[in-house]
Structure formats: structure tokens, C-alpha cells
């Protein structure tokens, strides 16, 4: 996909997120919208995947360590063709496929069950280690939230990934600066972030997580780094693309009602129209 198409897809994924959260009546729009551009680049450009064969052994793996952003993952998987888009409207509902947090057993394309913060990152390490042991060239991607960095397990995994020289692992930090109880600086500061990751032995790339070209370049650079893992510290805006949700703590874990959704979708449709 070219950059314009990727931008259109990111916009579509944002519309999907809003649309699926309405009937769900709960869920996490803020941290899903902030990661929409990142997942778009991963699923529609960067990753080597086959939606017709979700368990293809040579595939690149993606672990949504910030599992509460499930809507953005489900939207990307549905748009990619892993399952019908109608499934999105069954999000979080009894007896339906799409669980509140990613479920690898029931949802095609989900590579790891996540939701308890910090845990997915370790699983991504395990996948990268397995790839090294088997001499396979697949890559593993893990998306972390900045609030998630307070979990000690993240730093256990960060230490291990550098120790085992996992250059087939790329972490992406969705650095939107907000968590449930306030800003990350208020709740539990993770500063200075790039320094911490460098000190843990990682190659660090800082970029704008909504700049498609920057993301493409960042992943490209990660490919070329040998002997250590890479993290893209992607500065993002929580709620990005929906003006009333942007940078608003209250939209971490609340679904929009029908009226709010219509307002959001209208703005998103106008935005995509401007792309031409």
C-alpha cells in the first residue's frame, strides 16, 4: 500500500473502532485510536502474514501487550480479511467471538491472548526466541502502552530480550501519556523513557506514532539493527482522530453512545474525504 492508502486504511480502522464500541456499550476507545496508525502500518505494509492461513509457521507475529486496545486489533484483522467485518458488531457480547481482550484460541489472527498488562511482552520474547532456535526469519512485534511500563514484568522482559540479542523483536510503545487515573506523569512517571530503554540494551527510535512515513522508516531501521532488539517510542495522542476524545482521560474505558459515535464518524469521513 502507498502512504495515501495507508492513511485511508487508518481512517477506516478508526471508524471501525467507533462503530463496534457502540453496540458493545463498553471498551477502550482512547488507546485503540492512538494505536490505529501503528497497526495499519504493521498489518497493511510491514508484516509478512497470510490471512487465509492464520497459523502459517513462517508468519510474522504481533502481540498486543496492551490488550485492552483489542478494538484496534480486531478492526485491523477484519479489514485484512481474517474474519468477516460483521463480527465487529458482536464485540464483548455473550456467545460471540470477539472477547473484551484478545483471545488466541477463538479469534483468527490473534497470536497471543493478552489483557493482563506486561504479560504479552514476555510471550513476544518467547516467540522471538523460538524463531532464533529454529533458524526462521520471521519477526515478532509487540505493542506496549506507556501506563503498562509500570509493570515490573515489562522490565524483566526488556532485560531478557537484550540479553538474548533478540534483533527479530520490535517493540512499539504507544506513548500517549494518559492512563486511567490521569497522566502517566501524575500516576507513575516512566521518564526518562529513551534513556531507560537504551540502558536496558535496546536500540531506540523516537518518532511520531501518527506519521505513516515515519513509522515505515522506523520499522525499516529496526530490520537493519543486528544483535539487539529495537523499540519504536511512538509519540501518540490518546483518542486520535476524534476531536472530543483526544487527550481526554475520560475516554480510556468508555464507549461512545450512538449520538457521540455519529459525530465521531462524521468527522472521520470528512477527514478521509480530504485525502482525495
Amino acid at each position: 500500500m502507498n502512504v495515501i492508502d495507508l492513511k485511508r486504511m487508518a481512517n477506516q480502522i478508526r471508524q471501525d473502532i467507533i462503530t463496534m464500541l457502540v453496540p458493545a456499550k463498553s471498551g477502550h476507545p482512547g488507546g485503540s485510536l492512538s494505536a490505529a496508525d501503528i497497526l495499519t502500518v504493521l498489518y497493511f505494509q510491514e508484516m509478512r502474514i497470510r490471512p487465509d492461513k492464520p497459523h502459517w509457521e513462517e508468519r510474522d507475529r504481533f502481540v498486543l501487550s496492551k490488550g485492552h486496545a483489542a478494538p484496534v486489533l480486531y478492526a485491523a484483522l477484519a479489514e485484512k480479511g481474517y474474519f468477516p467485518k460483521e463480527e465487529l458488531l458482536g464485540l464483548r457480547q455473550t456467545g460471540r467471538m470477539l472477547q473484551g481482550h484478545p483471545d488466541m484460541k477463538g479469534i483468527p489472527g490473534v497470536d497471543m491472548s493478552t489483557g493482563s498488562l506486561g504479560q504479552g511482552f514476555s510471550a513476544a520474547n518467547g516467540m522471538a526466541l523460538a524463531g532464533k532456535m529454529d533458524g526462521k526469519d520471521y519477526r515478532v512485534y509487540a505493542l506496549l502502552g506507556d501506563g503498562e511500563l509500570a509493570e515490573g514484568q515489562v522490565w524483566e522482559a526488556a532485560m531478557a530480550a537484550a540479553h538474548f540479542k533478540l534483533d527479530n523483536l520490535t517493540a512499539i510503545l504507544d506513548f500517549n501519556g494518559l492512563q486511567i487515573d490521569g497522566t502517566t506523569d501524575e500516576v507513575m512517571s516512566s521518564a526518562p523513557l529513551p534513556d531507560k530503554w537504551r540502558a536496558f540494551g535496546w536500540h531506540v527510535i523516537e518518532l511520531d506514532g501518527h506519521d505513516i512515513e515515519a513509522l515505515l522508516k522506523g520499522f525499516d531501521e529496526a530490520h537493519r539493527v543486528k544483535g539487539r532488539p529495537t523499540i519504536l517510542i511512538a509519540k501518540t495522542v490518546k483518542g486520535k482522530g476524534v476531536s472530543f476524545m483526544e487527550n481526554a482521560v475520560g475516554w480510556h474505558g468508555n464507549a461512545p453512545n450512538a449520538e457521540q459515535a455519529e459525530q465521531a464518524l462524521k468527522a472521520l469521513r470528512e477527514e478521509v474525504a480530504q485525502l482525495g
Binding site: S122, A124, A130
Partner: peptide, 28 residues
């Protein structure tokens, strides 16, 4: 040695890493 991973004193990461290995076909 190529199939042994000393994870250090970090049991939480050890279990998560084992999960990832199992998800990739290993029997950890």
C-alpha cells in the same frame, strides 16, 4: 545448551516466555 534458557531471577517473565515458545510449537 542451545535449548536451555536461563531466565535469571525473573519467574514472571519465565512463564510468559514459556507461553510464547509454546505458541511457536516448542514444548517448554
Amino acid at each position: 545448551p542451545e535449548r536451555f534458557l536461563n531466565m535469571g531471577i525473573a519467574e514472571q517473565n519465565m512463564m510468559g516466555t514459556a507461553a510464547g515458545l509454546a505458541a511457536s510449537g516448542k514444548i517448554p
